[in-house]
């Protein structure tokens, strides 16, 4: 059977692609729900904004850790 499709290149790129799925969904949820909350209750803007910021920081941190994870695991895996 002949090869139908093959992937060549660096595996860490796939790893970062997978690591970016979760934070992508998370950031979408945070901003979507945050905007909805502000629209429902504009007077609670300060509180909602503070919590949106906290959630965004925590989620973005995951995405950025995914970015450096290949460098961290470099000397453990292939070597």
């Amino acid at each position: 059977m002949s090869v139908l499709a093959e992937v060549s290149g660096n595996v860490t790129a796939i790893g970062y692609g997978l690591a970016a799925i979760g934070p992508g969904i998370g950031v979408g949820i945070i901003f979507g729900q945050g905007v909805q909350a502000i629209a429902r209750q504009p007077e609670a803007y300060g509180l909602i904004r503070q919590n949106m910021l906290l959630g965004f920081v925590l989620t973005e941190a995951l995405a950025l850790i995914g970015l450096v994870a290949p460098f961290i695991f470099q000397n453990i895996g292939a070597a």
Binding site: Q50, V57, L58, L64, I65, I72
Partner: peptide
């Protein structure tokens, strides 16, 4: 060694997040 790099990365993320949160989240 190979322990300080991951520790530094996580510490840096925590400090950066703390900085933004204290600066803008009143």
């Amino acid at each position: 060694m190979s322990a300080f790099f991951p520790i530094g990365v996580v510490l840096g993320v925590v400090l950066g997040g703390y900085l933004v949160y204290r600066k803008f989240g009143r």
